[in-house]
Design a protein around this nucleic acid. Structure first.
Length: 341
DNA sequence: AACCCTCCCAACCGCACGCCA
DNA sequence: TTGGCGTGCGGTTGGGAGGGT
């Protein structure tokens, strides 16, 4: 294996004499077994000592990372569900790059996983939109288009066939209220500032076939809730005023946005230690899935954190099918050309 | 088939912080 | 107070996978 030839750069925590024997790079199945066995028998913590006592030629740091990000039995694998994406978007808007803090609210997900999700998916969308993820413009787009879209997906999954009224109420509750001074507030407690020109962008972006009224106003008319999200076959006005069918832009989305929710499986927790990697990973998925059986209550527990955002929507049975986070065909509002960006 | 490109993610790095002797 | 150690966090990177040409 290539990593066998990898040396250890200076600055590592290990003693100088150990540098030649310490390994770096990808973990082998044998190392995983050693680490999992040791932790199963002795628990975690004191990682440097643990690495030595387990017979691992790794730094404690590396062992800790491997355990927390990969071997832990309660980890979930697979794509992010719409609910998780929604939480990430909302919590990132609130806390920024506080990945570990965000991860605390997504059971079975690691900070590394969330960070990777943000960097690969969210930042890619920002690139497609030609704006910075930290910009007010992108934040407004997220709040006015992405989050409502996710809520719509969640709601549609939870309440198939329900009318638009309830949906409108639910999504309106998820959207910020813009005061006369330009300050926006969430149904929850935080407040953010609309940047210069943001109101116009928001208004433009949120004008859909569902709502003919302006969505955000800073003209002194007072706070007004944003409209509900567009229906699946909505059209959107580009910055140039043209109306484009949403079906024209599906290429802007990628299939790896698909939410690959794993069905619950039987957990065989104790089997982890002596299994090969394939089975081991399968078992980890099963373990994560079993935790999801308890996740239904977890979602409702989040209501204190996301009170107005999710309370009216309710959470589904976490069995979203293989559709994109944008919905089957309505992802198109993000198409760069449509938005005229 | 070979090459190139993009995407994804596991693993690494540096730094900061808390604890304790 | 200080230095060592363990741990946690956020940023970065290397390489594999997969798709396109």
């Amino acid at each position: 294996m290539a990593c066998d030839q990898l040396g250890l750069r200076g600055g590592e925590e290990a003693a100088v004499g150990e540098e030649e024997t310490l390994r770096r790079g990808p973990w082998t199945v044998e190392e995983d077994v050693l680490l999992a066995n040791y932790i199963a028998a002795n628990g975690e913590g004191r990682w440097n000592a643990l690495a030595r006592r387990a017979g691992l030629k790794r730094t404690g740091k590396s062992c800790r990372l491997r355990w927390l990000n990969y071997l832990r039995p309660d980890l979930r694998r697979g794509g992010m569900a719409a609910e998780e994406q929604l939480l990430i978007l909302e919590l990132h808007a609130r806390w920024g790059n506080r990945w570990s803090k965000i991860a605390q609210h997504l059971p079975g997900r690691t900070d590394n996983e969330i960070k990777n999700y943000w960097r690969t998916r969210v930042q890619r969308h920002a690139r497609q939109l030609r704006c910075d993820v930290g910009s007010q413009r992108f934040r407004d787009l997220v709040r006015c288009l992405w989050i409502p879209r996710l809520l719509e997906r969640i709601h549609a999954s939870a309440n198939p066939g329900e009318g638009d009224d309830v949906l409108a109420q639910a999504t309106a509750a998820a959207l910020p209220v813009v005061a006369a001074d330009g300050r926006c507030s969430w149904p929850a407690d935080d407040v953010f500032e609309l940047g210069p020109g943001a109101a116009a962008d928001v208004e433009l972006s949120c004008t859909t076939a569902l709502s003919s009224s302006p969505s955000v106003s800073t003209d002194g008319c007072g706070a007004r809730p944003l409209p509900p999200p567009a229906p699946m076959m909505a059209t959107a006005e580009s910055a140039h005023g043209s109306v484009v069918s949403s079906n024209n832009c599906s290429a802007a989305m990628h299939e790896h946005d698909t939410a690959l929710w794993q069905p619950p499986q039987t957990q065989t927790h104790g089997g982890l230690i002596m299994m090969g990697q394939e089975e081991q990973h399968h078992d980890q998925q099963a373990a994560g899935s079993q935790q999801l059986l308890g996740a239904e209550t977890w979602w409702s527990d989040q209501s204190s954190l996301h009170a107005g955002l999710y309370a009216d929507v309710g959470f589904p049975e976490l069995e979203l099918g293989g559709e994109t986070m944008w919905g089957a065909c309505a992802d198109d509002l993000w198409c760069t050309d449509m938005l005229g960006l």
